[in-house]
């Protein structure tokens, strides 16, 4: 039995404080995965998701989109993602459910997908995470390592 191909996709703007939480988490996972030779775990980062990400995620068995969020009370929250054709009000970017739906429409199959909501405290134009954001990153990184190992065949 082989390891599933896993993608951690962090997105957001690191120049806007906690908006970069997803990106920083993906970077932490990248370092940890390389140090531990977990070659089935890959990471990707970008400012925003877009239509080409349908092709990106198609190459994986499990995908976790990590993003700063106002939609969580806890420091972090994992949500199983279902495809949705819902159109957002901004179309220079799309949301993860839309990417998943487009992947299904174009390729006829989708990975097991999740959104990891990371609670952001502030989104002003400034370098680095807030103190609260750093705490969220630390907690989420500890959790996602366990999650990734639980999905792996070691």
């Amino acid at each position: 039995m082989s390891n599933p191909r896993i993608l951690i996709y962090g997105y957001g703007n690191p120049g806007r404080q906690d908006d970069g939480l997803g990106v920083f988490l993906a970077e932490e996972v990248e370092k940890w995965a390389r140090e531990n030779h977990l070659d089935h775990i890959r990471t990707e980062t970008n400012y925003q998701l877009n239509i080409e990400d349908a092709a990106e995620i198609h190459d994986f068995d499990i995908v976790v989109f990590a993003d700063a969020s106002l939609a969580t009370e806890e420091s972090y929250r994992l949500e199983r993602l279902q495809p949705s054709p819902k159109v957002e009000f901004t179309m220079h970017a799309v949301d993860p459910a839309f990417v998943l739906y487009l992947c299904d429409t174009v390729y006829g199959e989708i990975p097991e997908a999740y959104v990891l909501h990371l609670k952001g405290a502030s989104y002003e134009m400034s370098e680095g995470l807030t103190t609260k954001g750093q705490q969220v990153l630390q907690e989420a990184f500890a959790w996602i390592r366990s999650f990734l190992l639980s999905k792996s065949v070691l």
Binding site: D19, Y47, Q48, L70
Partner: peptide, 15 residues
């Protein structure tokens, strides 16, 4: 048009 705003945290886009 591209309006200068890259913050897009989930749930922060009112109509």
């Amino acid at each position: 048009p591209c309006l200068s705003c890259a913050t897009h945290a989930l749930g922060k886009m009112p109509l």
